[in-house]
Each structure stands twice: as C-alpha cells, then as structure tokens.
Design a protein around this nucleic acid. Sequence first.
DNA 1: CTACCGATTGACT
DNA 2: GTCAATCGGTAGA
Length: 200
Amino acid sequence: MAHNTLTPTFFEHDVREVARSLIGKTLVSRHNRQRVSGMIVETEAYLPKGDSASHAYRGPNRKNASMFGPAGRAYVYSIHARHCFNVVTEDPGVPCAVLVRAVEPLDGITWMQQRRQTEKRERLSTGPGRLCEAFAIDRQLDGVKLTSRRRVWIEHNPAITICNEMIRSTQRIGVTSAGRLKLRFVLQGNGFVSGPRSLG
DNA sequence: CTACCGATTGACT
DNA sequence: GTCAATCGGTAGA
C-alpha cells in the first residue's frame, strides 16, 4: 500500500492507548477537490465506563449513536455553534472516543485560511471547533469510516517518530462534570496545542 | 412548539 | 486573565 492509512485494528485498542498513539499522526481531509492535512498534536480520551464527561454516560441516543458503533469511524457533534471531531475506538457496544483537539497545519494551508477567514497559522486548527472548520468537518461526517480514505482519514508518517517522553498528559479542557483524570494528551512544546500549556 | 444546555471561541479588561 | 454570544440537539409541555 502506497499510503499508510490507519486500519480498523489501530482503533480497536483501549481508548487511552489510541488517544496517545494518535499524537504525531496525520489527519487528512478532502472536500471539493481541496486536500488539507495536519499533524495531530492534542487529543482527549472519553472512557466507556464511569466517565461523567462522556456524551455516552447516560446511555445511547440519536446524537451519540456513533460512539456505540465500531471502531475507526467518526463521531462528530456540535456544541456552542461549533463542531468537534472524534474517532470511535474499542468494540461495538462499548461507547468511547478520542476527541482530536488540535493539529499542526501541513498541506492545504490556503484552503484552511479561506475556510477560517484568517491568515494566522495558530488560529487555523488549534482547538476542536477551529480544526473542524479548517478541515470542512461537520455533522454530515458523523459515522463515516475513517479507514476508507473517502472524505476524512488518518495516516501514519514513517518520517515522524513520537516517543512517550514527548507526550504530556493533563486534565481535559472545558470538562466540568468529570474529575481530575489525566486524559488529555499533548505533544510537548508544540505551538499548535490549544488551551493552557501546563495543566496538571 | 419553546426552553435550556454545552467536550467553544473571539473579543475585551 | 474574564465574559458573553453562539445554535443544533434534546427534552418537555
């Protein structure tokens, strides 16, 4: 295979493990013949059990159905008039997902600037809502397979090696209900990470 | 139908 | 640092 597109197996592991191993991977979107990509630098895990911050905490409904589906699909929801992009992990019926909070822009930066209405690199894809706007991700993409390279997918770049020491784990951002679990993973020192850089 | 909420953002002191 | 606008989805009348 010419491309190192991540396979379903990659997403079938423990959600925390997937959240950590997604750091350094390349998120790619193709929309209207416009290809944009970026390196994932910030993720958050939402656990299948005992996680009151998870949208699936109170059971399945129409909005969160994708979280209960098979691994390797998108879960896209809207909040505060923005969209957020998640990757579903683990087994069907086990509701959990990784929220992708920030990427470092790589390809298609002019498309991102057009969609985001700004030139500033840090404002293109830092933060879940901005990222979705830059990558043209909305609720129409909820439930799509990320492993089939259709509209949005994730690749492994063999030129990039991320070791554990380069990843920092902190509390999740904007989560009011859950405790102080360290379920946010950031690429240490990267300038495209959102929010406070050094939360516990 | 209306009421309310939030895994946010951008503008402002 | 603080703060309010934001609007789709859901729940309830």
